[in-house]
Amino acid sequence: MVKKLSFSLVLLIMVFSQVQAKDAYERHCVGCHKELPTSLQRMFMHYLVVYSGEKNVKAGLKHYLKYPLKEISVMSDLFIDSYGIKKKTLLSDSQIDEVLDIYWNKFKVIDKLK
């Protein structure tokens, strides 16, 4: 009995530490987006071609996460028709900002060109 309890506790700690090891972006974004055919990298490039600068891109993304609409989506009509519009985010403003900072730093073009 004691052995079973100890095993369960170790398992719980392992699962919890695994969850903590992922950053906010991976926790809140990657899970759903890995099901889609277009990568987050490509989507980033879609935002970049429309919004250009860091502040502008983040502001555009934040607005879309909070108020998702087909009309303001940067994705193609084919994509929207196939996969629809995402649901309105449940994340707080600070959580969205944290996620977007990670997203920008991960895929930004600046410093990557040679």
Partner: peptide, 9 residues
């Protein structure tokens, strides 16, 4: 340069 005059390359 981007919209915010930040140098890209």
């Amino acid at each position: 340069y981007d919209l915010e005059y930040t140098k890209i390359f």
